[in-house]
Amino acid sequence: MADSVAMLDGAPQIAAAAPGRSTRWDVARRLWRHRSFRFGLGLFAIVIAAAAFAPWISPIEPNKLAMRARFLPPSWDHLFGTDNFGRSQLARVVYGAQLSLMIGTAVVVINAVFGALIGALAGYFRQLDNMVMRVNDAVMAFPAVLLAIGVAAVLGRSTPNMILALSVVYIPRTARIVRSSVIVVRQMEYVQAAVAAGAGHWRILRRHILPNSMAPLMVQLSFLFAYAVLTEATLSFLGLGAEPPTPTWGNIMAEGRQYMREAPWIIAIPGAALAITVMALNLLGDGLRDVLDPRLRVQQ
C-alpha cells in the first residue's frame, strides 16, 4: 500500500495536502458528494415519508374489508390493487412500512446499546474478552436467519418477540465489530497517555474509546438495519411475525402467496417495497463506510 503511493511519485502530493482530521461538516460534505449515499438517502426518505404519512396517503384502513372489491388489479382507484378480502394494498403496504421501520429501529437501538457495551467491555478488559468472545463465536456459529427462526418459534409470534429474536442474533455481530475497533483505539498513544495520567477506566472508555470506535459502529448499524428489516420480513413470511391481520410486508406476501397466479400484485408490491428499503439502507451503509471508515476508504 505504502508503495502504491510512491509509485505515483509526484501526483499524490495533492491528495496528501487535504486536511488530515475530518470535521463533522467535512464528513457531511463528503457524504453528500458520495453518489450512492445520496441515492440511498433519497430512497430511504421516501420510505420514511410513506410510513409517516400513511393515514394521509391512504385514508382507507389497512384492515377494512370490501368483499365487492376483491382481487382488483392496480388502477387509479386502487393504486396497488386489492387482495382476497378487498383490502386496499396501498394501505397495507404503507402501514406495513411503519412496522418494518419500527422493528428495524428497535433492533438498531438495542444493538447500539448492548452491542457497543459488550464489545467495549470485552475489548477494554482483556480478562472478560476470552469468555465473552467464546459465547459470541458460538452464537455466530448459528446461521443468523435460522437462529432468529428458532428463537422466534420458541417465544411465539408477536412483535416484541420478533425484536428480541433479531437482537439476540445480531448483538454478538455488533459486539465483535466494536470490540475490534476498541482494541485498536486502546493501543493508541493518547489512550496510553490517559492511562498513564491515572484516568479511571470508565472515564477512558467514555471519553476516549467509545467516541473513537463510533465510525465502524455507525457503518455496522446501517447494514444491521437492512438485515433486520429483511429478516423480519422473512420470518413473518414464514408465519413467525405479528399475528394477521396485522399488515407486515412478510404477512401480506404470505397471505398473497396462494393467489399469486390470479393476483401477483399482492406479493409483487410489498416485496418491491422491501427490496427498495433494504437497498436504501445498504447504499447508506456503503456511503458511511467509504467516508467514515478510513481503513476502507481507499477502496473507492
Binding site: 505515483l8 511519485d9 509526484g10 501526483a11 495533492i14 491528495a15
Partner: peptide, 12 residues
Amino acid sequence: LFATENGEVAAV
C-alpha cells in the same frame, strides 16, 4: 502528466 482533482499536473 497525471490527472488529479485539480486538473492535469506534470510529474515529470
